[in-house]
């Protein structure tokens, strides 16, 4: 092996010797770029290009068919007078504020439970993960039936447990309960995925740390607070960023379960972007709303990054 390295001249193939060091370097670069090219071409055209276009469009007036006009900050000022946007903004914040911590706690709890040596553990894990991969259209329609205020089994069960018929929640049809319904659905659908990520994190913790804690006579609770949680910090960071981004861009489940209603009680940012673009054809303004969504994601990601660094 040593004999065939370039520094040990004499035995190299003639063609290789003919190439200068610089040519060989250039060739290796070209090979590297050829690996990247197929993916990068598609990525640049269909992702990078539209992203740049989106930032420009936010400062334009366009209905998609007539001339594009420069709008300056018109679209920006419109945000403050648009009741739909204001409702969508706060609803998105409320959805995120509840669904992120609740999903994290559920996912972590489930991961700790299913990291124990239980018989049938793989079955339990698969079951918890299944809602995440299931078609949203299909599960949302079941969800709507289960939570049907008049006939659904959920209210029937509440009724048999003695809840007064007048106090039964109206779920998706009631403006006070619609957001709760959406949040519960999100937790049920997504927690399995984050459980798998937490499982991976738990399996990466050094077992000696627990042995040392046992020697010190630590209780299970103390081990959780002083070993498990601190060791999981990188995982928790990853999970919180992913969940926050996912919550900010919530759309499908709202579209399927409540259509943003009743009223504007579950209207969220992406729903508003969709309406402004594909219903009203106010493309510039919809891009401005999209820009707000992007800034929200950016700010939260940076803040979370800072917080984890300080710890």
């Amino acid at each position: 092996m040593v004999a065939s390295t370039p520094s040990n001249g004499g035995q190299k193939p003639a063609r290789r010797r003919a190439l200068s060091r610089r040519q060989r370097k250039l060739r290796s670069y070209l090979v590297a770029y050829s690996f990247i090219a197929p993916n990068f071409a598609g990525f640049a055209i269909f992702t990078l290009g539209p992203i740049l276009f989106a930032f420009a469009l936010a400062f334009m007036h366009w209905d998609g068919s007539n001339h594009i006009g420069f709008a300056g900050l018109d679209n920006f000022w419109k945000l403050f007078h648009d009741a739909g946007f204001i409702a969508a903004f706060w609803n998105t914040i409320i959805y995120t504020a509840f669904s992120v911590p609740l999903t994290m706690v559920c996912a972590l709890g489930l991961a700790i439970l299913l990291n124990q040596k239980l018989a049938g553990r793989n079955f339990f894990r698969t079951a918890a993960f299944f809602p995440y991969v299931a078609s949203l259209v299909a599960v949302a329609v079941v969800w709507n039936m289960l939570f049907n205020p008049e006939m659904g089994p959920v209210n029937m069960i509440l009724y048999t447990f003695g809840v007064d018929p007048k106090d039964l929640p109206g779920w998706a049809a009631d403006k006070d309960w619609a957001m709760v319904t959406i949040i519960l659905f999100g937790i049920w659908k997504n927690m399995g995925y984050f459980m798998v990520i937490y499982l991976a994190g738990l399996q990466g913790i050094n077992a000696e740390l627990y042995e040392a804690a046992d020697l010190d006579g630590a209780t299970a609770w103390q081990k959780f607070w002083n070993v498990t949680l601190p060791q999981l910090t990188p995982t928790t960071f990853f999970v919180s960023v992913m969940l926050t981004i996912q919550s900010f861009k919530v759309f499908d489940q709202v579209f399927m379960i409540t259509q943003g209603g009743p009223g504007t009680s579950t209207l969220v940012l992406v729903y508003h972007i969709y309406n402004e673009a594909f219903i009203s054809w106010d493309l510039g303004y919809s891009s401005m709303v999209a820009l707000v969504l992007f800034l929200l994601v950016l700010v939260v990601t940076v803040v979370q990054f800072r917080l984890t660094r300080e710890e």
Partner: peptide, 21 residues
């Protein structure tokens, strides 16, 4: 880094210009 940065970018932010294109 350029690749990774776009992972955090929700598709919904650029779905409209992508559609127009």
């Amino acid at each position: 880094l350029g690749y990774v940065a776009t992972i955090a970018m929700p598709w919904q932010v650029y779905m409209v210009p992508q559609f127009l294109m």
